[in-house]
Design a protein around this nucleic acid. Structure first.
Lengths: 333, 333
DNA sequence: TTGAAAGCGGTACCAG
DNA sequence: CTGGTACCGCTTTCAA
């Protein structure tokens, strides 16, 4: 690997000149002829600056970390895509770290990530422990939470999950449903709580009594959907429609329902949060609520960059814009 | 951020001692009492070594890059998971870079990645241009291709796509199918070519005539599956079964087939390459061939680490172990 | 307009 | 067993 000195030698100038030319430093001027020679030499050697040395000096490496819990979840894929784009746009690399179940010991993990390797961290991990957040706050590390609120975290960007949930439930209500179940996510996840809240708001706003037993809490997994729907369908007075807290849950629920002979949408209408490829591949195509997930990733990067640069800006962002995507999983009653 | 010198000062020793203690250097010994003091000081300050400074000196940063074309593809998710695990096991970070359509200018991209930021690169990008590979070879950069063969690349790790395809097709043949279509992937993808080859091998080995018009080439997308299946079904003598080159293609095909009134598996049997969550969520559940994708990721990391360390080892690895996963998308004829 | 030199935060070699 | 020092490759201030 050629270094600055190599280029300098070939161009017959001092390395500091090379540095100035290559970074095209406005503060000092370089003779046109010299600049040309330097550029040529750099080109000839295929010179590329060493990011480590640069970062060491400048105390900024030009990369950000995005920590997610699980790569195979398409929800994260969208957040990642948005973050990637924005990072690239601003000349940064995105270092993706998936905790993939290896969730504990995260602190050490973050430490080694932060110590020079990246300029800041975005935590898309729905399950970060409060201790981790406290530590980040204490260390004054540049970080932002995405898709998760927290009392202790000063910065986060989230979607309007409550509005999304209400959109879904109102859609069902508008079609005449009164007994509407909710397959909720894990009570440990902020998004799950918020969606459940939205569900309840919509129900009560329509003057329908809220029934605790129509809400089944589980995890964000297909199996959870399967288990949940069985419980709902075995109720003496089962719901005519369900709102699933995410797509996987809905998929599991549809699968399990079908296996017990329940037809969708004739016997049971289904609406789910999140709209990914899967929604249209299921049959019947699933009616969903689309949240601006890519936007979440984008905003998180923007906010992080602001924090890292010490610039002012909003500390909490709620991205509006939930949208209903109609397919064939709902029938009027 | 405390530095080595800070720790040294607090412990009342020289920084070089601190370095030795913290890296627990076997070559020089340190008095037990001193060691304790150093450890305490480091703990008290919350010291963590700066990865950049370390990397600059050691010419190795402890991170690897994995370049993929598209995060939302679950096939890559599995490769990523395997790579992550192996990287972590060996104390490395995995820097994930998704080209996400931004495919050109890859060279520059790789350059800036390689220049110090990572110790090597794994290219899971099925569409890397040969020029890129030539350049990597020329630059003697540590790199490995995964899930793609190449004449010009000296190192790659792939699955046994041909055997997998044969497994799928033979399964259909065993159940009495003779007219078997193939929804192939893009001719630019090595995996697609290999699977097509496997398909043909299986067909001919069974003494069935190979019909060019039963093979539809497309891309690895759901839409391609939709288009392809329509063409196959509109043949004067349509196939009774199809082998889809990947799961997305199969999902699209099933969707389109169903919409034209074709029942699966009664009218048309379907087998697809790859087994992800989607396969069991579709209805009917899709019979698939599972390739050792996680293993691919793992092996790629191992190989890359060997290359980076200049150790000897195999240059091409073909990971065996395709496996048929039976569900409900095939009926005997 | 250019050159010299210091220093970012470590590691490792050599001397004591 | 411990301290001093050079250096990894770059940026930047100060002098010439």
């Amino acid at each position: 690997m050629p270094t600055l000195r190599d280029v300098a030698k070939l161009a017959g100038v001092h390395q500091s000149i090379v540095s100035r030319v290559l970074n095209d430093d406005k503060k000092t001027s370089v003779k046109e002829e010299t600049r040309r020679r330097v550029l040529e030499a750099a080109e000839a050697l295929g010179y590329w600056p060493n990011a480590l040395a640069r970062g060491l000096k400048l105390k900024s490496v030009g990369s950000l970390a995005l920590v997610i819990p699980d790569i195979s979840n398409p929800v994260y894929a969208e957040i990642i895509r948005g973050a990637e784009q924005e990072a690239r746009r601003s000349g940064h690399f995105l270092l993706l770290a998936s905790t993939e179940g290896t969730d504990p010991g995260e602190l050490e993990f973050l430490q080694s990530l932060l110590e020079g390797r990246v300029d800041g961290v975005i935590l898309a991990n729905a399950l970060v422990e409060d201790a981790v957040i406290d530590d980040l706050e204490a260390g004054r590390y540049p970080y932002v939470l995405v898709n998760r609120r927290s009392q202790r975290a000063s910065r986060y960007v989230v979607a309007d999950d409550a509005a999304g949930a209400m959109l879904a439930v109102n859609y069902l209500i508008d079609r005449g449903h009164r007994r509407i179940g909710h397959l909720a996510g894990p009570p440990t996840a902020d998004t799950a709580l918020t969606r459940k809240y939205g569900y309840r708001q919509a129900i009560e706003a329509a003057g329908i009594a809220f029934h605790e037993d129509l809400v089944i809490e589980g995890s964000y997994s297909t199996d959870s959907g399967r288990v949940g729907i069985r419980r709902l369908l075995s109720l003496k007075d089962p719901p005519t429609a369900v709102f699933a807290a995410n797509l996987r849950v809905a998929a599991g629920a549809m699968d399990a329902a079908r296996r017990t002979g329940t037809r969708i949408p004739e016997d049971l209408s289904v609406v789910a949060m999140h709209d990914t490829e899967l929604a249209e591949l299921l049959s019947p195509g699933l009616t969903t609520v689309r949240l601006p997930l890519e936007g979440l990733g984008r905003e998180a990067v923007r906010m992080l960059l602001r924090v890292a640069r010490g610039e002012p800006g909003p500390e909490q962002v709620v991205l509006l814009g939930a949208e209903l995507v109609e397919r064939e999983s709902v029938s009027p009653i």
